Simulated scan of single mutants.
Amino acid sequence: MSDDVARVLVLIAGPIAAGKSTLARAVADRLRDQGRSVALVDLDTVAEMALPTLPDWAWAHEIHARLVGHWTRVPLEVVVDEGASTRAEVDQVLAGVPGPTAVITVVLVADVRRSWERAQGDPTRGISKDRGFLERVYAQFERELPALDHDVLLDAESTSPEQRLAPILAEVERHLAR
């Protein structure tokens, strides 16, 4: 393994308001608690840099993908990324990741009604509080899901936060032990 690139990229994909950010922070925090060197990249944070004048979310996705690629080119142990929800967005991120970096793709699925309820309680949420918008996004994600290759598939509604963390951390450790 090259010493000048990240050893593992954990890419967390899923629909809006499913819990990707919460899961990504938990993974990064747990790995840091274990003494691992970790970078956390969040699409929403990238987009916030230009809000409310962000002309197009495609711009945020492009910058986000480039940022992930740059983080994987430094000698960290793990880069944790969240933000993709389509195969094209995953591919956009992966296009910038150097070959020696192991990629663990995590897909998080969730119930639209429960996600909408979570969004209602989050003061940072915007359009995802609109039930109709969220239903359209989830319908699109359902169509996208078969094309999303994954190493770990997690259901936000039927698993606890610890149950969601365990398989991701096990995969990270498996790759780091190589």
Rank of each mutant, 00 (worst) to 15 (best):
D81T: 09
D122S: 11
R114K: 06
R114S: 09
V103A: 01
V90N: 12
E89Y: 04
A119H: 00
H64E: 02
T105V: 12
D81Q: 13
T72N: 08
L67E: 15
R87T: 05
P98V: 02
E89G: 12
D122G: 08
I63R: 12
V80Q: 12
A65E: 08
L76T: 06
W71R: 14
G83S: 11
S128Q: 15
V68R: 03
T86S: 15
E77F: 11
V90F: 07
G126D: 04
V103S: 08
R87M: 06
W57Q: 14
D91L: 09
S85T: 03
V79T: 05
E82H: 14
D122P: 07
W116E: 07
Q92N: 13
G132Y: 06
L94F: 04
R131N: 04
D81M: 05
S128A: 15
A65T: 11
V109F: 00
R118Y: 07
V78C: 06
G69W: 01
A102V: 08
G132M: 05
V107Y: 00
G83F: 08
R136T: 13
G121F: 00
G132W: 09
L134K: 05
A60C: 09
A102G: 14
P98M: 00
A84R: 09
T86A: 12
D130F: 11
D111K: 07
A58C: 13
R118V: 02
R114Y: 01
P98S: 04
L108A: 00
S85N: 14
P75T: 02
S115M: 08
S115D: 02
E135W: 03
D91T: 07
T72A: 12
F133K: 05
I104D: 02
A119M: 03
I127D: 08
